[in-house]
Simulated scan of single mutants.
Amino acid sequence: MKLSAEMRAFETRIGYRFQTPELLIRALTHPSMSSPSREDNQRLEFLGDRVLGLVMAETLLAEDETASEGQLAPRFNALVRKEACADVARQIELGEVLKLGRSEMLSGGRRKLALLGDAMEAVIAAVYLDGGFAPARDLILRLWGPRVAQVEEDARDPKTSLQEWAQARGLPPPKYLQVARSGPDHAPDFTIAAELITGEREEAKAGSKRLAEQAAAKALLARLTPPKA
């Protein structure tokens, strides 16, 4: 099977040329486009998630030989969670080559976090099946490289840090309040406020409640703990 010019350009962006093009096509086919003669990427997504996990676990162990399991776990989670996969997918413009059904396309599927994250995992699996573990590992380390370098900073959940800040001062945990919701049902935006019992409060907007809560907690922490001069 011959790949389109768009697919060839995508291969260039990820730095891997497929020997079996059908694997790449399947990795980029959303279930909304599946048919008896066209497989979707769900099974590949399942495999890719495991390959990504193994590579990240190996990498983190090699990067810090003294870290405990308790230190490694949050770093690992930060690197393999769906948001991280979706961020990498956006970086390589994966959404531009996703094969979506009409309804999914009209609902903004090319920008949806879950679809991008799933497809990124499927691409990893496709490379693994096409070339083996070494090319899949190389692909992951190439695309995730900067994130691995800064994972210690990013791994800590701002909500956890804010709660610990409050508890250290004898305060109850912060509250998270939904201030507003806007946008269509398929791509909503949530505005969430993080608030302490003492009155300090910050708001943030994001495409999911969880992300908005984290952003609000991060903003409030930044105000409560200004950088030292």
Rank of each mutant, 00 (worst) to 15 (best):
P172A: 12
L54P: 00
G132E: 11
P36V: 00
G207L: 03
K159D: 06
A166Y: 15
S208C: 07
L115W: 12
A62P: 00
E65S: 14
G53R: 11
E69N: 12
R156N: 06
K228G: 14
T29P: 03
W165M: 13
A9S: 09
A216P: 00
E11T: 00
R223I: 02
L24D: 00
R81E: 15
R137P: 11
L224S: 09
K209F: 13
E63T: 05
E202I: 05
G207V: 08
M120T: 00
L24W: 02
A229Q: 10
Q214T: 11
L98I: 11
R147H: 04
E83D: 10
R147N: 04
M56E: 06
S68R: 13
A9Q: 10
N77G: 14
L211Y: 04
R137M: 10
L221H: 07
A89L: 07
D49R: 13
L52V: 13
S103C: 04
L23N: 10
A229D: 15
A215F: 04
A57G: 08
R38P: 02
A215H: 12
K228V: 13
S68I: 05
E39A: 13
Y16F: 09
I140L: 12
S68V: 10
G117C: 03
R17W: 01
I124L: 01
L60W: 08
L115Y: 13
K112P: 08
E152N: 11
A229C: 06
A216E: 14
A229F: 13
I14K: 00
L141M: 12
L129T: 02
R90Y: 02
K82V: 13
A86P: 12
L177G: 00
Q42C: 09
A168T: 12
F190N: 08
E39R: 13
A67R: 04
R137I: 02
Y16E: 01
L28N: 05
F76H: 14
R17F: 00
R102Y: 10
D64P: 00
H186S: 05
A84M: 14
E200K: 01
S208N: 02
M7G: 05
G108W: 06
S32H: 02
M56I: 15
V80M: 11
M7W: 13
L79N: 01
S32Q: 04
M1I: 03
G53M: 05
L139W: 01
A136C: 10
L220A: 05
D64N: 15
S37N: 10
P174V: 09
T20K: 12
A57P: 01
A136H: 09
L24S: 02
A212V: 12
S68P: 04
V97E: 01
L129W: 02
L94V: 00
P174Q: 11
P31M: 02
L3T: 11
E200V: 01
S32L: 01
K175F: 02
R26C: 07
P135I: 06
E202H: 08
L220S: 06
